[in-house]
Structures are given as C-alpha cells and as structure tokens.
Amino acid sequence: MDRLEKPIEYLVRLCGWSSIISVAAIFIFIFREAAPVISKINFIEFFTSTEWHPSKHGEPGEYGALALIVGNFAVAGVAMVMAFPLGLGAAVFISEFASPKVRETLKIGIELLAAVPSIVWGFIGLTVISPLLVDHAGAEIGTNLLNGSIILALMSVPLIVSISEDALRAVPDSYREAGLALGANKWEMVARVLFPAAKNGLLAACMLGVGRAVGETMAVLLATGNTNQIPHSLIDPIKTLTATIASEMNDAARGEEHFQVLFLLGILLLVITCTINLIADLVIKGMKGKANA
C-alpha cells in the first residue's frame, strides 16, 4: 500500500484540479471557435443594433445583438420580480412559522421541483401557459416575455427559497429573541431584525436567481416566441441570447461567420453569468466573514 501512496496522491491532486482545468478549457475552446470573428466584427454594431441577419453562404451578415441582450435581461428581470417576493415569503414561512414536519415536507417538495428538467418547463410554457395567456391576458402570441418569465420564475423559485432560507436560519436566535423582547411582533421582527441581518444572503439568493434565469435555454427557447425585437409590453414575444444559440447553431456550419458569432454570444453569456455568480459568491463570503467576526 505504501508504494501506492505517492501515485494516489498525485492522482487525487490532479482530479482536484479538474474544475480549474474545466473552466480554463471552456474559455479556451469557446474563444478558439469565436476567434476568427472577433477581429472582424464591429462591436459598436454588435451592442447597439437590433439588426440580426446572419450571413448565409458567404454573403455578408449583420450582427446586432442588442435586442437579444435586452430580451435576455427582460425575461430574467420580470421573472425575478415575480419569483423573489414569493420565494422570500415562502422562505420566511419555512424558517419562522412552519412546524418541523411541515418544513421538512416543503423542503423536500422544493428540492424535487428544482429537479424538473428545463425542457419539461418549456413544454409547459408552450402547451399549457401559452393558451392561457391568449385567452386571459389578451396576448396575440402566447409564447412571449410574460410566458417565459412565469416559467423562469417557477424554475428559479426553489433556488431562491433554499438560499434565502439558509440565510434566515443563519441569523442567530438571540437576534430573534432580542427583537421579540423589545416588544416587536413577529411581523416587525422579520422585517426589521431578520431581513437586515440576512440581507447579504437574500441579495445573493436574488443574484443567483438572476444568474440561473439569464442562462436558462430550453425553457426560454420554447416559451418566449423567438422574435428579434425590443419588448414594449409584457406580452410581446422576444428572443434571448441563449435561445438564439440553441436554435441557430444546428443550421450554422463550422467555418461560417454565423457559427463564430454564435460562439461570441456564448462568450458574452459566459462573462455575464460568471460576473453575476462571482459577485453573489463574494456577497455570501462577506456574510460568512461577518458571522465569524
């Protein structure tokens, strides 16, 4: 066994580095495919124009991604407006009011919901929510911004609830007792003591929710109507960066400009989500640091 000790340690160490290797490889290979177009593309047009006309068979194309970026953030933002208050309410209920049995049941239910695949959510948006929006919300096209947001809200709620609940439970009981002893009712205790004390965790929950919603692909592809325009109302169909990559990549051949631009969208998406997640991570770390101090 002693003979194996060193080789095993090297193997373990190598595997330990696998996550860094993976992250580096993701950046390298996506940049590699996008590289030929980075020097050619007009970045001012890329970020300010809404004209998205990919080139076909060597004809020049136009690549204005503004509407896609706006669409991506719009659908994620509206989803958060719906998901965060409800998720926070549910987290407060679970951590402050529910009996242990109810808490366990709800947490298991939420965990199972988090596992529902995104294609199933997209399918629900396409077949269930879309007709409802046409009949009751006056939408002309049932797959639209609101549809995508509802689906994304349902998808990101489990994440928001579980992180918010962790943050609330991390607040020491002495805070709660002090609040109540000062004559606050539970409502006031939650709003004035718990929320401020847990605010970093709650903020992180919201950000991770945004990160999840921005990166979601299949659900958005099926539910948002895929129209390259800046939305003016909740029931306008939109198109997102993620859906653009997913729906156009199969028809773009390698070596074509279109193929490379789709990788460029991937880089943009990677940068956006990494930034959001890293900030959320720092916020959580900040929270832990404070708790230890």
């Binding site: 396409l126 096209i141 049932g142 592809l221 099926l222 109507g225 129209t227 198109k239 859906a243």
Partner: peptide, 12 residues
C-alpha cells in the same frame, strides 16, 4: 415573430 417550431406556428 420567428416561430422556432412548426407546432408553435399552428398553435399561434
């Protein structure tokens, strides 16, 4: 509205 599926075209 660029429908990304034939089903969406007919449904709409």
């Amino acid at each position: 509205a660029e429908m990304n599926s034939s089903q969406a075209v007919i449904d709409t």
